[in-house]
């Protein structure tokens, strides 16, 4: 009975939403603020990737909140799972391919991760995408050797200082008499690697923070799983 009502309800909601959504003007959005941002952002922010201008400039505090959410989730997961010391040696190691493949791919993942972070203001990508790849780079060895552990103390230092530097860059602008998180420094040529003022710095902070946060989340989960 519950299942039937649930299905009926879900179907009804879907039908209603579809009816509403089909009334929308698909393919030609109003772009009230989108258009203005597109035309103003090369001068105001100076990043070739306009999504980056929005993420770090126009909606910078959203990104800060997002970092805080990741941090909160990682702290909460740490609280839940605790830090038990696992006994090494009892776990089965990964196979040959996983073990050596992981070691082989590690430097490439690092390079790609940092490349994506550094070019976040020029190409699709940025701190979040690059940070995820960094986390993967450090998590891969854990899969190959389940007993191995990440250095949580180093991770938490990176976590702390990457997050803090994002806010401190914002506060620096405030100290200069401007608004919090206002882009500073020289914008330079549009499309150059060193351009767009503080945006690349912010993205490096984001990338490190995301990488450290995800790595600690994943290693926490992996360790707890190997406890069982």
């Amino acid at each position: 009975m519950r299942k039937l009502t649930g299905l009926l309800f879900a179907g009804g909601l879907g039908f209603m939403l579809l009816a509403i959504a089909s009334g929308l003007d698909f393919g030609s959005p109003p772009m009230r603020i989108g258009e203005a941002i597109q035309s103003a952002s090369p001068q105001e922010v100076g990043a070739a990737n306009i999504v980056t201008s929005v993420v770090l400039g126009y909606r910078g505090i959203d990104t800060l909140g997002e970092l805080a959410i990741l941090f909160a989730a990682a702290s909460a997961a740490g609280l839940v799972l605790g830090r038990r010391h696992t006994t090494t040696g009892t776990q089965r190691k990964g196979g040959f391919v996983l073990f050596h493949g992981g070691a082989l791919i590690f430097p490439f993942l690092l390079t790609i991760g940092f490349y994506i972070i550094f070019h976040g203001h020029l190409t699709p990508g940025g701190g979040f995408q690059g940070g995820v790849i960094l986390a993967a780079a450090f998590f891969l060895p854990l899969l190959a050797r389940p007993g191995a552990r990440l250095h949580h103390s180093i991770l938490s230092v990176i976590e702390a200082f990457a997050g803090a530097s994002f806010i401190l860059i914002g506060l620096a602008a405030l100290g200069e008499g401007q608004a919090f998180l206002q882009p500073m420094l020289n914008q330079d040529t549009l499309g150059a690697l060193i351009s767009a003022g503080t945006l690349p710095l912010l993205y490096i902070a984001v990338g490190l923070k995301v990488g450290a946060e995800l790595a600690s989340l994943l290693s926490n989960l992996a360790q707890t799983e190997s406890e069982q």
């Binding site: 203005a36 400039g57 505090i61």
Partner: peptide
């Protein structure tokens, strides 16, 4: 109203 990042509403937050 305080514009964050120096971007005036409604473009910024």
């Amino acid at each position: 109203s305080v514009a964050i990042g120096g971007f005036d509403a409604p473009y910024g937050i």
